[in-house]
């Protein structure tokens, strides 16, 4: 495993820890999209089905179990925690997830490496992950609640994507025969969506800064 891949995994892990800590410490999930969190749970479950069939490494297994359990933990907080669930922006978080899930199902059925249950589900998870952040970005733009912790979460997720691109480049040049165009194209789309968010974030941050200057 190269340093980019490891750093990418760690920022991904940190992003989830930051989100959980924010929810636990502030007893609030204001500005967090439950729809995005549910999409991530679907992504992890459909991708990590291979936990039952193939063993890659202890690291791999531990990380997969962590991603699945932490995503369900966040969903539980947002849906069922007595105090946290009341802070959920239900009226603002209205993105129609079917617009993302249904095209991803069709695309996974059409474009995959092998037409088998596990492989199609894996491909579906790759496609879905690339767009799963959209409800979160729409919610951030709507509520304009650029809460530091929520934006840290989104920033860390973006850093994870960028590091994964470096990891792919590194592996492409160092491992003969390493090539994975489904993951590359979805990952590039995903990173582009984050760049769009960064642009929006910087613009609103600069606007806020200008507003707070003494007149």
């Amino acid at each position: 495993m190269n340093i980019f891949r490891f750093a990418g995994d760690m920022t991904h892990l940190c992003s989830i820890v930051v989100l959980l800590l924010k929810i636990e410490a502030t007893k609030s999930c204001a500005g967090v999209s439950l729809r995005t969190q549910e999409l991530y749970a679907v992504v992890f479950v459909s991708r990590y089905l291979d936990l039952f069939f193939t063993f890659i490494s202890v690291y791999n297994t531990v990380m997969k179990v962590f991603f699945i359990t932490s995503s369900f933990c966040i969903i539980w907080y947002m849906r069922h925690h007595r105090i946290v669930s009341q802070t959920y922006d239900r009226e603002q978080d209205t993105f129609r997830v079917a617009f993302l899930v249904v095209p991803c199902i069709f695309l996974a059925l059409l474009v995959n490496h092998e037409f088998s249950m596990v492989e199609v589900l894996w491909t579906f998870s790759i496609y879905l992950e690339s767009v799963a952040i959209l409800p979160q970005l729409i919610l951030l733009q709507r509520t304009f609640n650029v809460d530091t912790l929520t934006s840290n979460y989104v920033f860390l997720l973006g850093a994870y994507r960028a590091l994964y691109i470096l990891n792919w480049l590194y592996r492409y040049f160092t491992e003969p025969g390493y090539s994975q165009w489904i993951v590359w194209s979805s990952g590039t789309l995903q990173t582009a969506i984050y760049c769009d968010f960064f642009y929006y974030y910087v613009v609103s941050w600069r606007k806020n800064e200008r507003l707070s200057l003494p007149s």
Binding site: D9, N60, M63, K64, F67, H113, E114, V183
Partner: peptide, 10 residues
């Protein structure tokens, strides 16, 4: 193969 290339990633 391309099928297995990404399977060790998360």
């Amino acid at each position: 193969s391309a099928k297995s290339a990404a399977k060790d990633e998360l």
